[in-house]
Design a protein around this nucleic acid. Structure first.
Lengths: 340, 340
DNA sequence: GAGCGAACCGTGAGCGCTAACATTCGGTGG
DNA sequence: CCACCGAATGTTAGCGCTCACGGTTCGCTC
């Protein structure tokens, strides 16, 4: 062909061209002080001329500042995960950080070594987006071994709560779940059913709590997978039961599945059946009818996780990052029961 | 605190414990032949005991096999992008590769240096998920400069078609777009309108082509953003016009927006209006009514992109990867016009 | 039993970079 | 006018690993 393996231009090439030492070049590319303006300009010119770009591996090896974060997660195509990742990315991009994504397989059992092996090196900064047991495990490993440089995000209930503020960033979906349940009860529903996502049980706990507070015995939880299809299947039975007038769903996708099942069963929403989701995914407001759901600021939380991590890395005491609190958004899939 | 900066255990530590040279350890961790079974076992034991894990940066620096791929993309929360990424991830995970995700800002203008600067080093393997001008630009840069190790994926029409087979992986959405349009025409619609995504115009081209073939003058294209909300806004006018009986939408999200607009305008689907989307997103089949759309195997394409790249990296002549061809899935949002 | 080639293992160098120290040089004050 | 200082630059070492060799050791052949 052509294009003989080209020049991997290094810091030394630049140094030679600029007539300085390689260290001076290093200083320039790292914006260190103690470099005369004239020299700096010369070096920059040489860099431009040669098209030099620093080698990240070498940098990392030599112990320079890190500038990269590994994100551990399972399914990047779930809305919550994707949005959280997006938040992390946005913040990372703004800060000039690179992100590495390492996807864990939920069907696999990871040892500590497996988890750590996914980091570029010992003690490398990482964020885990925690949803289920797989990522929760990873999170625990990191918290135990990573000496500070770890932040996890996600709304799960964990066994490790001590000093959680230092490294755990999460959305209080438990409280809103209770609030949503209470709202349904206040509309006059005798009870509220729960269709669960395959994930640890924050939302479910909030639901159960609200029912308990109201002195209502919680109906049996129905379990669904992550897909709309599985929610549809799982909801068939619920929807066929006229006693069921309100269903709280683990997320919007499940709610859509339930809505479809209701439609097929000829039950009108919200006349016969109220449905509430979680996430306020982009479609929720434009569904027919528009879905009552809970706004969860995943992007904000992702951003927050990154900011927190960066603070630990670079010291400094910026204010703790904030984001929107979960909020119930009442639209048209919920209302009083039995107005048929 | 506690946890004094722990042991960064290196290959030498392992070597000492196992009573061999560091090179032998290297051989073991790289599964090289020419190591006696007994030695191998000893080394492995030492590795386990010390909890040794290779440092990726050092490995990369020393010129070992790569095992990591940079993915360049813009919006990871779009369905197509997310699924493609997922396909890449799946394949990468199976092959033991790490993936680095670098998100480009569509509002920014990237120079060649900017794009290359996102790679860990010169000539590092990369995949770009191409949608719009931003990523297309990145793709061109890579193709020009990366000496082989580049594969791009996406369904865009590009100026660089030579030898495209070697590095371009894509879905032929243009042809299905034409097919979908012809299907609508065959149902008796006088014409088909197109609601465009903000992306280069493959699908639009297919639509225009089909209309031209049928001797129909293409109505003006209506432009939408990526969100359901923007599609809703954009569709308001179309939907108010009783002459409009069929709308082909750039993707499913836009179709949902149109459906919602139709609902608000009291136009029945598919009685008054036929709507077709693209992507076959998970919700499409469970929408009310279920959406006629085009199945696009983004995951397959992602997997394919990775496989192709791996072949270039490791030589070998595996069969060229394959995936499902785009296919029109007729559900309930399309049919003959005017059956009110 | 000399000769020879595998099989196995060790030694040195160096990837591109940064940290830490050493050096130079033009002032400045006593 | 010389010791002394600090800003600007150079020198040396080494991060953890792999590559390209160079040595051993062994089992066979003739």
């Amino acid at each position: 062909m052509s294009a003989a393996e080209p020049k991997p231009v290094s810091i030394f090439d630049v140094a030679k061209l600029a007539g300085v030492s390689h260290q001076t070049v290093s200083r320039v590319i790292n914006d260190a002080p103690m470099v005369a303006d004239a020299t700096r300009a010369k070096v920059k010119a040489a860099i431009a001329e040669l098209g030099y770009r620093p080698n990240r591996s070498a940098r990392a090896l030599a112990g320079g500042a890190v500038r990269s974060v590994t994100v551990l997660t399972t399914d990047t195509s779930l809305y919550g995960t994707a949005e959280t990742l997006r938040g992390i990315e946005d913040a990372a991009r703004a800060a000039g950080f690179t992100i590495l994504v390492s996807v864990l397989d939920p069907d696999q059992d990871y040892t500590e070594a497996d988890v750590l092996g996914r980091l570029p090196h010992d003690g490398a900064p990482a964020i885990v987006i925690a949803h289920d047991e797989t990522t929760t495990g990873a999170m625990q490993v990191l918290q135990r071994k990573q000496a500070g440089a770890t932040v996890a995000t996600g709304g799960e209930h964990l066994d490790i709560e001590q000093h959680a503020d230092d490294w755990l960033v999460s959305l209080d979906d438990r409280t809103v779940a209770a609030r949503a349940t209470r709202y349904l009860l206040s509309m006059g529903h005798a009870t509220v059913h729960y269709l669960a996502i395959p994930s640890k049980a924050n939302r479910q706990a909030g639901w159960a709590e609200a029912l308990a507070d109201a002195g209502i015995e919680a109906p049996e939880v129905v379990h669904s997978g992550w897909t709309v299809g599985s929610a549809y299947e799982a909801a068939l039975e619920l929807v066929a039961d006229p006693e069921v007038t309100a269903i709280l769903c683990g997320n919007d996708d499940l709610a859509f599945g339930v809505l479809y099942a209701a439609h097929r069963a000829d039950r009108s929403v919200p006349g016969d059946l109220s449905v509430i989701g979680f996430d306020d995914s982009p479609l929720a407001a434009y569904h027919v009818p528009p879905l009552t759901t809970v706004d969860l600021d995943f992007r904000g939380v992702g951003r927050g996780a990154f900011e927190l991590l960066r603070q630990k890395l670079e010291g400094g005491s910026h204010p703790r990052p904030t984001w929107r609190s979960p909020e119930l958004i009442v639209r048209e899939t919920s209302g009083p029961p039995g107005r048929r």
